[in-house]
Amino acid sequence: MNPSGFVANLIHMIRRILFILAFISIIASVYAAFIYAPTEPKMGHIQRIFYFHMGTVWVATVAFIIVFIASIMYLWKGTRKWDILAYCSAELGVLFLTLTIITGSVWAKPIWGTWWTWDPQLTTTFILWILYIVYLVLRSSAGNDTKKAKYAAVFAIIAFIDLPLVYISARVMRGISPVVFGPGGGGISPEMMNALLINMFACSLLFVVLLLERTDLERMKDAVARLKMS
């Protein structure tokens, strides 16, 4: 089962480096957010949480795109590695999205005066979160059952296609027609932009490292189950 010694060593080394890089960049991101970036004049210090907020939502988005693609690949190829990738990526996606929602709420309380509002973006985020929790319930109940793993894959595909429609319906519900993405641009200083990019990079690295570890764990579980069987 082991790849040849050299390749194995190389992979091991790359993963070591990734791990160290992720660790360093997390520290850098904390520095960038709390010390390097200037204080936003209107919102004050609370705005700093936005860097983590954006970092985590970015990773969650990437994670759910991976779930979608891996699910399609799993139905097409039927190989377990795609199933594992989809499952693990969904887990991390939910984790990061939970962090997004928490940081968002912490930010919203002093700025908007409330933890939560039902505006289209938040509503969609909330339903997104629910959809992938449902996916996890479905997928984890499947275990090694390939048939149920396919159910989860189909659900992931249907859920992903549904998201734009959920967003539109959240807007329809509130009767909001135009929508402006982002803060309108221009208001961000270069230092803020740098801090944001560093945070997004750090979160991405953390995601990659966690995803590698998590898929490895799943593969090891498979190996153990196999040994138990025989």
Binding site: G143, T146, A225, R226, M229
Partner: peptide, 14 residues
Amino acid sequence: ILAEELKKTYGNFD
């Protein structure tokens, strides 16, 4: 019927 070396695995079960 002509089957050669048919294998079927369900998850971890052969």
